[in-house]
Design a binder for these strands. Structure first.
Ligand code: MN
Ligand code: MN
Ligand code: ZN
Ligand code: ZN
Lengths: 139, 139
DNA sequence: GCTTTTCTGCAAAAGGGTTGCAAGAAGTAT
DNA sequence: ATACTTCTTGCAACCCTTTTGCAGAAAAGC
């Protein structure tokens, strides 16, 4: 999954830990550092949590990985090439829905035209009530 | 600023600490718990941080206060009646701009029509590059 | 293989927020 | 005004997540 030299091309050393962290992020979709660590441990039981944190940061610095905020707490990590959707997070059931990024295109353009603000809509979740929960509470 | 019985009307006891926490949130605009504590301490030096946290939670439960996420870390608090704008947070200079909530109206309607998702656009910031920073980096 | 530089594991610390508990204050009834 | 009940506060201890310093291990380059 992680090609042999895509890490070296970025000026990074290719260590088993680093390769496994990247692989885990790619396989997991959105994952907390803890979840990444757990996944990596299936292959490399000894990996330290701090190594996971440091590699996530390193991989983010070279653009292979990104983080987003889906809940009230910490960040979750995505493979950079796969972050092509909005996250619709339900405040009631905590479910995470996806929507295509184009859904926000007009909104993003308006902010750019009116405020000169260049929005990254994926960094924070879109927060609200999912359809199930909003139906329930209105009945 | 905090009327005598608006707290009692919500079924809460009116303590000096609670009244001051509410007042501080109203005066500060967006404030972290730490900032609220600091403001309150101008009047009541002895107030404990845990009292601030507990009161923010209590005030949020009765709808007088709300929290939003403006940065990568913790929450910031708003007076409920004043949360009528979007937050445009710059990833580079950390500035916090405002935009009227109607800016997002079409976007919110689309999410509702297409996904049944009822968005609260104020809970998370809109993240990106402010006009100053995007000008700089493009030159 | 040997040298240089980066990376890892470990343990300790920091940061932000929460909790149990006993004492204190607010509200309520007498 | 006093007594009673219930809620709130301060304090200290604690928890969970993330960061940091450091010494040894492993990559990359020669
Ligand atoms: Mn939140
Ligand atoms: Mn972030
Ligand atoms: Zn839901
Ligand atoms: Zn900026």
């Amino acid at each position: 999954m992680a090609k042999p030299n895509e890490l070296r091309e970025k000026g990074l050393r290719l260590t088993p830990q680093r390769e496994l962290v990247l692989q885990a992020v790619r396989q997991l979709g959105h994952a907390t550092p803890e979840e990444v660590a757990e996944k990596v441990r299936a292959t490399q039981p000894g990996i330290n949590l701090s190594t996971v944190y440091r590699n996530l940061e390193t991989l983010e610095n070279v653009g292979l990985v990104l983080h987003t905020h889906l809940g009230h707490g910490g960040a979750t990590y995505h493979a950079a090439e796969e972050l092509t959707h909005l996250h619709l997070v339900c405040s009631e059931c905590q479910s995470i829905g996806d929507a295509p990024i184009e859904t926000a295109a007009n909104f993003v353009n308006t902010l750019s035209d009116d405020y000169g603000f260049k929005t990254d809509v994926t960094h924070f979740a879109i927060y609200g009530l999912c359809s199930k929960c909003s139906n329930k509470s209105s009945k």
